[in-house]
Design a protein around this nucleic acid. Structure first.
Lengths: 193, 193
DNA sequence: AGATATCTTGAATGAACATTCAAAAATAAA
DNA sequence: TTTATTTTTGAATGTTCATTCAAGATATCT
């Protein structure tokens, strides 16, 4: 046996960035070769093909983002302030104009979920995991009586995720930072109401 | 002088559908030739290049959707019931699984706005026009006292658009019709609150 | 009818594409 | 140290891509 020479995480993060900058279809194997430093043969040996590399990058992306998400909530004292800090971080990403601050999952949902069943499955699962985490957040907020109204944590989580997807799309068409921040604040209010 | 033989609107609607099914980058000139019935030379003569055809298709799309939007609101008696009918129609589109029922503007925002300044400009304008129409809707609703709270019509319009963008993205990852309908209902409530 | 201008045709072009493969290098097992 | 196994290399492959163009067709104007 012989193990691969390259650092898998480093390669996947490089591929992630390449995909985020140009989108899946516009990113060529040449781009991926330059970004990762891997020769074509190595990429095909390790990931089967271009789509395999995307799926692997998506998994790494979700792992990284989940860690970041949990870090934000543990850094804050409560679910309430965690949620606020989380939305603030998303607003910063939206107004950053940095392609690598976009959401790779969302980009993939819009570009290829409709066309590829395997990708659709992976993305659907990632969305559900995100939803499940947010559901726990709202459950804890309910325990601390910081939520009014009678919506279930699950419904709140769904509305939050929809709002974040929408915010990310909207911010690409309309880049006024104040508007983005205002919409995010209102989203926070609505979802806690 | 000699005018073109083909029906411009018919060609643009065919191109629209092609772009919606595969996305801009995955749609080849061969696809566009098949969809429109135009030979490559004619496409280049009339629209300069592939991107020119997309921009023309985007304008036609926005024209068509604006007409449809106005039709829904005039068909209903009030701004209030118009908004409800409009959201219902979007829910139907989201759960239809028909690529040609997606929003071409939203697809283009996600796929190319970041990469192409000219497209970004067009899409930003279309978003603002949509916002402006919805702003008028909320203004009229305010006149009839069907809105509680103190948000401005413009803020409500922005939140609505963000919600619709989000709904469209979310529905590609999670296709449960009841969930989509519930989220849309909540969006209606939040935006009128 | 003739001249002119413009559109249509569809094959040709060269670039860029994803993928393959055989040789070389490197590791691990014997 | 030898052998077996796997990865790495990077040029080669054949396909598909957006675009061009010269010849032919057609409408409008004089």
């Amino acid at each position: 046996m012989r193990s691969a020479e390259f650092d898998r995480e480093r390669v996947l993060r490089a591929a992630m960035n390449a995909f985020m900058e140009k989108g899946y279809n516009k990113t060529s194997m040449q781009d991926l070769k330059s970004a990762t430093g891997l020769h074509p043969g190595s990429i095909y040996c390790a990931f089967e093909n271009k789509k395999g590399l995307l799926l692997a990058a998506l998994e790494q992306y979700n792992q990284d983002r989940t860690a970041e998400l949990k870090s934000i909530f543990t850094q804050q004292g409560s679910a309430q302030s965690g949620l606020k800090a989380y939305l603030d971080s998303i607003v910063l990403e939206c107004i950053s104009n940095d392609p690598t601050q976009a959401c790779l999952s969302q980009k993939a949902i819009n570009e290829i979920a409709q066309q590829d069943d395997e990708a659709q499955q992976v993305l659907s699962n990632q969305c559900k995991l995100w939803q499940s985490f947010m559901c726990d957040v709202f459950t804890e907020m309910a325990l601390h009586n910081v939520l009014t109204g009678e919506r279930s944590p699950k419904q709140r989580a769904q509305s939050l995720i929809v709002g974040i997807y929408g915010l990310r799309t909207f911010s690409q068409a309309q880049k006024d930072p104040q508007v983005i921040a205002d919409i995010a604040n209102q989203l926070l209010i609505d979802v806690c109401r």
